[in-house]
Amino acid sequence: MTRVLVVDDQFLIRAGLVGLLNAAPGFEAVGEAGNGEEAVLLAAQARPDVILMDIRLPGMNGIEATERILAEAAAPTPRVLVLTTFDLDEYVYGALRAGASGFLLKDSGPERLLAAVAAVGGGDALFAPSVTRRLVEAFAHQLRSAPDAPPPPDLDALTSREIEVLRLVSRGLSNPEIASRLSISEATAKTHLNRTMTKLHLNSRAQAVVVAYETGLVTPGG
């Protein structure tokens, strides 16, 4: 059973998502919140597997709520799936940077939404790598050069193999594809990626893509 917390400031959207989840086998809505502050409190109380997070919320927005939830959560950390009205959204980029596992357009159909929640809950990559890359390339340089931007993680802690794996992840390759490219087993590729994410304190594969661009490991269009 995948336990889901629904966060959206519009009551009808929240109610629709809750109804959809509770009617589908294998899913349970364990709470609903109308703003970021409520989301942080309910995430700590309900311990959901997945959080459907509207990005533009009154008061504490979805980026801030995602940061708080992931920073304060006890293991296992919930996975955040951002809901947005359009894919090239600076707010979505900020949420991925904060550790969200993926994003989904609000006009997606019920089957796609349930498949996305299941994928994120299972730890799988969610969206087409081309969409992730397009979003990250649109904002990585812009936000990296902002005066108040935090410094990107230092990659010196990574081995040469881990850097290779991070570069391939940022290019949208799956674990089986990485394994084939590097002539290693899929389990070894996954181990390298997990170690990379641990060393860089990353919560999601999408966050690893952001880091690869912000550190200059890969460049837009490169």
Rank of each mutant, 00 (worst) to 15 (best):
R3Q: 13
R3G: 05
R3S: 13
L5H: 03
Q10Y: 14
F11H: 13
R14E: 09
A15D: 15
V18C: 13
V18H: 01
N22M: 10
A23D: 13
A23F: 05
F27D: 02
E28H: 12
A29K: 01
A33I: 04
G34K: 10
A39P: 01
A43N: 03
A46Y: 04
V50R: 01
V50I: 10
V50T: 06
V50S: 01
I51S: 01
I51C: 11
D54S: 09
I55R: 01
L57I: 09
N61T: 08
E64F: 07
T66N: 06
A73F: 07
A74L: 13
P78G: 09
V82A: 10
L83N: 08
D87Y: 08
D89P: 09
Y91F: 15
V92S: 05
G94K: 04
A95H: 03
R97Q: 14
R97S: 10
A98G: 08
A98Q: 03
A100P: 02
L104C: 09
L104N: 03
S108G: 07
L113Y: 00
A119R: 10
G121T: 02
G122E: 12
G123Q: 09
D124C: 13
D124Q: 15
D124S: 15
L126V: 07
F127E: 15
A128S: 15
P129I: 06
T132Q: 12
R133A: 12
R134K: 14
V136I: 11
A140Q: 06
Q142R: 15
R144C: 09
S145G: 11
S145W: 08
D148W: 10
P150A: 08
P152M: 11
L155K: 10
L155G: 08
D156I: 11
A157F: 10
A157V: 14
T159E: 11
I163R: 12
I163Q: 10
I163A: 13
V165T: 08
R167I: 02
L168M: 07
V169G: 02
V169C: 09
S170N: 09
R171D: 10
G172K: 06
L173R: 06
L173I: 05
P176N: 09
A179W: 00
R181Q: 14
L182P: 00
I184W: 00
I184P: 00
I184S: 00
A189R: 00
H192P: 04
H192D: 13
L193P: 01
N194S: 15
N194I: 06
N194T: 10
K199A: 12
K199V: 06
L200V: 06
L202V: 08
A206Y: 01
A212S: 11
A212H: 02
E214G: 09
T215Q: 11
T219H: 15
